[in-house]
Nucleic acid binder design. Structure first.
Length: 536
DNA sequence: ATTGGATGTAACC
DNA sequence: TGGTTACCCTCCAA
């Protein structure tokens, strides 16, 4: 018969089964069936088929249960519901040290394994702690002039918040203007940049003006009311000549005293543009390893001559603007991996906090002290995968002790079966987690967060949305003083040749007030991505 | 409705 | 050194 003829002419098929521990627990049974045909998910299907040697050598298909991560048998790693099981063969995902997993990591920030769970956890709105702290006795001190709200500015990758405005970016290139009091009305400006915006700052002089640095190699200055935008500099006047020459702007800050915009590109160079003359001043200066991205710039709030930069070469550097040239940094702050952000403290300007991809916040207590090594390293999960905007720890501008920092958390917490990513408030003087914010409706990661300069508001940019958080007691009355406040959603991000600069996460347009009624009318959209998450 | 590709960094070889 | 691959929670256009 035909079947027999064929059998003899093809190699024998051997199926290796998992003998030791195939007893699947009941909850993963449905997966078992489906996965036999797939190679990657937990079982390895291994075929040794040598087509040329017809017939004799057997085909071996192994159905042994192996770890998805290390491909070894005997254990499994990956998500089980909302909990991720680490591969014991890998270093701890959180602190990167071998010998234990995230679940048993001494730095684990969670109720069960927590390092230093706040006593206030779950008992009160975390905001109560955070904002109470600002209202405490020490807060009655008069704040230094340079942080009075009118003059405050500051920004971060995708969000900037001023007295009345928040700006965020989106990779597609829209700029949306939001009114705090009428959160559903949004004006969108879409043609300011042709690529994603990597940094934004409100003008220190005019609240309604925003500067932005983009992967299209330009700096824009936009009037948010009219949407009229000015291009201050273009590093790619000849257009796309290939990835080797296309320059993208990442780090940016404004230096009010000097009247310049400072920007840095993906090749390690710093540029300075005179705001009034709209001219590039001087030559580009190599401030980080040649060819490496400079992701952050920050001018010292007290001493305008001091500049802090950080980048992909694993360094943050402090510069004296009066004599800045390649290799002339005052200090080099070494990190183990890429430095996502580096900020001087907002009031005294004498502390530094950096966020690095080695899952550590680093704190230097005084720039006047020994800077050879950080005063403190705080393990915190903000390692990111390639599709996320890098996390950045941000100072609380209202904390006179300059010890409170807000930063999103990457690894999730199992919250009634849903994986939620809290936003952490950390006391950088002790490393203590003093508050964490999460909401079962918000299942996305929030890599970007910014506290309002004087109000009890946290703007939080997640992969899809901008959320506005307030303390509960402030949510009930719709305060008249909110009238006229604007939230702006901006950004850019048309890809060019698919070659560069398109962070796939960017905070974008949907805004949710924590007021219930506002949430309601957005419920459908909330639901849609909630379900998206849950089904994982 | 589902899915593949873009995307960045680092660790391999 | 370059090439390849892996990656823990995207997103979006095909």
């Amino acid at each position: 018969m035909a079947p027999q003829t064929r059998r003899t002419s093809f190699p024998k098929v051997i199926i290796e089964k998992d003998t030791d521990s195939e007893q699947s627990s009941s909850e993963e049974e449905e997966e078992e069936e489906g996965e036999v045909s797939e190679g990657e998910n937990g079982k390895e299907v291994e075929e040794t088929l040598d087509a040329k040697r017809k017939g004799k050598s057997p085909i071996c298909i192994s159905l042994k249960k192996v770890c998805k991560v290390c491909k070894k048998a005997g254990h499994e790693a990956g998500f089980k519901g909302a909990t991720y099981i680490d591969c014991p063969m890998k270093p701890c995902f959180l602190c990167k040290m071998p010998g234990h997993t995230t679940m048993t990591c001494p730095h684990r920030v969670s109720t069960e394994y927590g390092v230093i769970p706040t006593s206030l956890r779950n008992s009160r709105n975390p905001f109560a702690y955070v904002f109470e702290r600002q209202l405490g006795p020490t807060n009655s001190r008069i704040k230094p002039a340079y942080v009075i709200p009118d003059q405050w500015c500051g920004c971060f990758m995708t969000i900037d918040i001023s007295l009345s405005l928040i700006v965020t970016r989106k990779k597609k290139g829209q700029v949306g203007v939001w009114d705090f009091g009428k959160v559903y009305e949004k004006i969108v400006y879409g043609n300011i940049h042709s690529c994603i915006v990597n940094n934004m700052r409100f003008s220190p002089i005019n609240d309604g003006t925003v500067y932005a640095a983009s992967s299209d190699g330009t700096i824009s200055c936009t009037d948010l009311e009219t949407g009229i935008s000015l291009s201050l500099m273009n590093l790619n006047p000849d257009g796309w000549q290939g990835p080797g020459s296309w320059r993208m702007l990442y780090g940016m800050d404004l230096n009010k005293e000097k009247g310049v915009v400072l920007v840095a590109d993906n090749f390690g160079y710093l540029y300075s543009v005179d705001i009034r003359a709209n001219n590039k001043t001087g030559e580009a200066i190599l401030i980080h390893k040649r060819g490496s991205k400079v992701v952050g710039l920050h001018c010292n709030p007290v001493q305008p001559d001091l500049l802090l930069s950080c980048g992909n070469d694993h360094y943050a550097r402090i510069w004296d603007m009066r004599r800045i040239e390649a290799c002339s940094s005052l200090y080099e702050l070494a990190h183990k991996r890429v430095v996502n952000s580096a900020y001087f403290s907002p009031l005294s300007g004498s502390k530094i906090v950096t966020t690095s991809q080695d899952n550590r916040l680093r704190v230097w207590d005084s720039i006047f002290g020994n800077l050879d090594s950080p005063s403190r390293e705080i393990v915190h999960s903000h390692d990111f995968n390639r599709h996320l905007t890098p996390f950045r720890a941000e100072w609380d501008p209202k904390d006179p002790s300059e010890s409170l920092v807000v930063v999103g958390r990457y690894i999730s917490e199992n919250y009634n079966g849903a994986a939620l990513h809290p936003i952490d408030f950390i006391d950088i003087s002790t490393g203590q987690l003093v508050a964490e914010i999460m909401d079962p409706n918000i299942t996305t990661i929030s890599p970007v967060n910014k506290l309002h300069p004087c109000d009890d508001v946290l703007a939080s940019g997640s992969s899809r949305s901008l959320f506005i958080w307030r303390p509960k007691e402030k949510c009930e009355p719709v305060e008249q003083k909110d009238e006229g406040k604007i939230i702006v959603c901006s950004g850019a991000g048309k890809k060019r040749g698919g070659k560069f600069g398109d962070d796939s996460d960017a905070s974008d347009g949907d805004l949710f007030s924590s007021k219930g009624k506002n949430l309601k009318s957005k419920k459908s959209s909330l639901k849609s991505y909630k379900s998206q998450k849950v089904k994982r």
